[in-house]
């Protein structure tokens, strides 16, 4: 374990700065995301919330011109450490995208994709075990009853709501501890949004969930802690109801009242 690390945090950033080329997108971000909780990040477009989210599993680095200083600890380990294997990082930290992105293969293969990649190459996995993993993952996301009769049909035939649930389900078989969600409901209709929010709410406790949202009402409904960001800095971080009812900073108050953003 790294010295001075607080065990209550699933994700902890210290003095994190990030540049896209010459443009600084994150300024000295110190964030602690508590284990087993849902933490939402709100803020106007371009405030750095998606950047911060994408730094937590280092997928941001895929853009070659990104530079960071400071550190990010996930589950107590510095993910920028020298001996860090990105494949292991991404296995522990699942990510859900704005637009559901099921692979153009069957529902079954989608759910088992990561499992086959990580588990089935280490040991022999029986068909029965695969079926078990498949069923339990789909049950956890409340999708089993809808799709159990068409597991071998292409996943792209599902509705957007079902696709997004499937995208969450396929993360579960490799037992990640952290789920990052980048506006997971913004492509869905109100009914789908409600269903996916309900699902996210159910997953708390078992997983640490960090969710970026544009929708303040959603942050309020579906998160326990809330982080307000503005221009690359964290302005305020607290329990969701407190942040919305009695914000400490005037910027936060102005934003949640809709005066800008």
């Amino acid at each position: 374990m790294d010295s001075g690390h607080n065990g209550d945090f699933a994700i902890e950033t210290r003095g994190l700065n990030l540049w896209y080329g010459d443009f600084q997108a994150l300024f000295d971000v110190d964030l602690g995301v508590k284990r087993g909780m849902i933490t939402s990040m709100i803020g106007p477009s371009g405030c750095g919330k998606t950047t911060l989210l994408r730094t937590c599993n280092r997928i941001i680095e895929r853009l070659g011109y990104v530079r960071t200083t400071g550190s990010v600890f996930v589950l107590g380990h510095d993910i920028f450490g020298d001996d860090v294997e990105l494949v292991q990082v991404r296995k522990q930290i699942g990510m859900v995208f704005q637009r559901p992105n099921p692979l153009p293969i069957s529902i079954r293969d989608n759910v088992l994709f990561g499992f086959k990649l990580h588990e089935a190459r280490l040991r022999k996995v029986s068909a029965a075990e695969e079926d078990e993993v498949l069923e339990s993952s789909l049950r956890q996301v409340l999708l089993w009853d809808t799709v159990k009769d068409r597991l071998d049909k292409p996943a792209t035939g599902l509705s957007l709501e079902e696709q997004q649930k499937l995208c969450i389900a396929r993360l579960l078989p490799v037992k990640p501890q952290v789920l990052l969600m980048d506006e997971p409901c913004s492509a869905l209709d109100p009914a789908g949004t409600e269903a996916v929010e309900e699902l996210i709410w159910r997953l708390r406790g078992e997983y640490t969930i960090l969710i970026v949202t544009h929708n303040m009402a959603q942050a309020r409904r579906a998160s326990e802690e809330c982080v307000f960001m503005l221009l690359g800095r964290i302005i305020e971080h607290g329990r969701t109801e407190e942040l919305f009812l009695s914000p400490e900073h005037s910027e936060t108050a102005d934003y949640i009242e809709g005066r800008y953003g």
Binding site: V89, G114, C167
Partner: peptide, 8 residues
């Protein structure tokens, strides 16, 4: 993206 983020 989907693949990479599952650690492929």
């Amino acid at each position: 993206e989907a693949c990479w983020n599952m650690g492929a």
